[in-house]
């Protein structure tokens, strides 16, 4: 398609050249950060009542106008009356191990913290080009028209630095949303109220309708609904 749209651009006609260019670009702008420890989220898709206290707490903390939502509780429902089901998938930024957003940023505004793997956007460097928004497979970066910048969840770094947990986690009325070191969360070895002990084997990296975690290795794990499982074996680490 792209080739047809710009038939006269010799560079774009050569796929190998394009690949080469992307590689070079990535190398120039981005040295992947391997954090000492990666923090991530856990969310219980079934026990979540979908109240969105987490969303509003986040909006209040980050001073967001109506519109952009750093945290998004998505409602999924299915079945046929009266045999119906419903569950929630709650996602903000997944602070991915290999963030898709980061290398797309032309100003280097997006960075990944070494100590905990938090991915954040420095808003004073953001020029509002919205490339990261398009790159993220999970819809995390949010364009704020009033400020003409893109902003997103930073796992409440200020609270993390102060030794506390993020606002959304501390808002959750059902205690089904939490953070922790993602490897431990994935193994089910981290003490959290987000899951009951017997739910350990329901932990998944991906739920139905969610982008393939292979794309960015997102730091999130879910207690999935029986209808929310993807038809794939649980990913090995």
């Amino acid at each position: 398609m792209a080739n047809e749209a710009v038939p006269n651009n010799p560079i774009l006609q050569d796929k190998a050249t394009i690949k080469e260019a992307i590689k070079r670009h990535k190398k120039e702008v981005y040295t992947p950060v391997v954090p000492e420890q990666q923090f991530g989220f856990i969310h219980n898709n079934v026990d979540c009542i979908g109240c969105r206290a987490c969303e509003i707490a986040c909006k209040d903390k980050n001073g967001l106008p109506p519109g952009p939502r750093f945290r998004r509780v998505m409602y999924v429902e299915g079945g046929t009356y009266p045999a119906v089901y419903a569950y929630k998938v709650n996602m903000s930024c997944n602070h991915c191990a290999e963030p898709a957003c980061l290398p797309t940023c032309p100003t280097g505004a997006i960075y990944k913290r070494k100590q905990d793997g938090i991915v954040d956007i420095d808003s004073s460097l953001c020029i509002g080009c919205r490339r990261c928004e398009a790159a993220c497979p999970f819809g995390a970066p949010q364009f704020i028209p009033e400020q003409n910048i893109v902003s997103k969840c930073n796992m409440c770094v200020d609270e993390i630095d102060a030794g506390r947990k993020p606002y959304c986690v501390m808002a959750c009325m059902m205690r089904v949303l939490d953070i922790g070191p993602i490897d431990k969360l994935r193994e089910g070895n981290y003490a959290t109220k987000a899951m009951a002990p017997h739910e350990k084997d329901k932990l998944v990296r991906q739920v139905k309708s969610m982008a393939d975690p292979e794309l960015t290795n997102p730091s999130i794990v879910f207690v999935a609904h029986s209808q929310g499982h993807v038809d794939k074996p649980k990913e090995p680490q």
Binding site: L125, I149, D158
Partner: peptide, 13 residues
């Protein structure tokens, strides 16, 4: 690059 660079962001404490 840093968090909350866009405005003086008073932390809770």
């Amino acid at each position: 690059a840093k968090a909350f660079a866009y405005e003086p962001y008073p932390r809770d404490d």
